[in-house]
């Protein structure tokens, strides 16, 4: 809290200095037990654009990402707004316990960072962060990320292969722990806006029950991922005097 306010104050004191292009060293780690992340879209962008916003309706391209892992539309959208992106840094799925480290080159106007990736197996769950203010000062910055529900598909927890937007069901369980033959957990979402995912229900009946997911394997609590941004400033000397 106090730290946040200090950061605000420092940022405003620096605002007169010219902003420069920046190379960001980014590392994302999957903190869940058995949830896989589909390819990430990571974007640096200005304050007027975003990938998603809590409490607001999902765009159709956010829905495509959250229900089927397709980041193509979201990536096109944010680049059309001048954003810099890295797509699919893990070269495929990011498994539980796994991490991916990569460089994002952002231009001087893109002072905010957002990212998204679908969580498997879920109906429309995704890990994400909306518009972190990219730190300017050299250093290592750690953030913990939450699981969101896109609010676009009922969480029936049935592994029926529905990955296309608007199609019911979960596309896949890459870990192979899911069962089958569930009757379906719930009806339509009661919150159609992007909200905090209430988590997996699951059951302990691999051949029936209400859910195809396993309550002893597929559950999580926030946070579900760790994001570490290392800012490698342009100036290696006299950095301490900058502010």
């Amino acid at each position: 809290m106090k730290k946040h306010l200090t950061a605000l104050a420092i940022v405003s004191s620096l605002s007169a200095a010219p902003a420069m292009a920046q190379d960001l060293d980014i590392k994302i780690t999957n903190l869940t037990n058995a949830i896989y992340f589909t390819p990430f879209l990571v974007a640096a962008h200005d304050k007027h654009s975003r990938l998603f916003m809590e409490g607001s309706a999902a765009s159709s391209n956010l829905q495509a990402m959250a229900e089927g892992g397709n980041i193509a539309g979201l990536s096109t959208d944010i680049q059309a707004m001048g954003g810099n992106v890295v797509e699919n840094p893990a070269a495929g799925l990011l498994a539980p316990g796994g991490s991916t480290r990569f460089i994002l080159m952002s231009n001087k106007d893109n002072r905010h960072l957002s990212l998204t990736a679908m969580m498997l197996p879920t109906n429309d769950g995704f890990v994400g962060v909306d518009s972190i203010k990219i730190p300017k000062k050299r250093g290592v910055y750690t953030y913990y990320l939450k699981a969101y529900d896109a609010g676009t598909e009922a969480n029936d927890e049935l592994l029926t292969g529905g990955g296309a937007p608007g199609m019911a069901g979960i596309p896949a369980d890459p870990g192979g722990y899911a069962g089958m033959g569930g009757s379906g957990v719930t009806g339509a979402d009661h919150n159609s806006m992007i909200h905090i995912h209430r988590g997996t229900q699951g059951d302990n009946d691999p051949a029936g029950g209400i859910s195809d997911l396993d309550s002893g394997v597929h559950q999580w609590d926030n946070p579900v991922a760790k994001l570490v941004i290392t800012v490698m400033g342009k100036h290696k000397k006299h950095d301490d005097d900058d502010d």
Partner: peptide
């Protein structure tokens, strides 16, 4: 009730995780 709490009137849709508010 979906997780076996027999006294519960709530189904799994009432679950929540933190944070609950922005």
């Amino acid at each position: 009730m979906d997780d076996g709490l027999t006294s519960s009137a709530l189904d799994a849709s009432f679950r929540f995780d933190n944070p609950a508010a922005r």
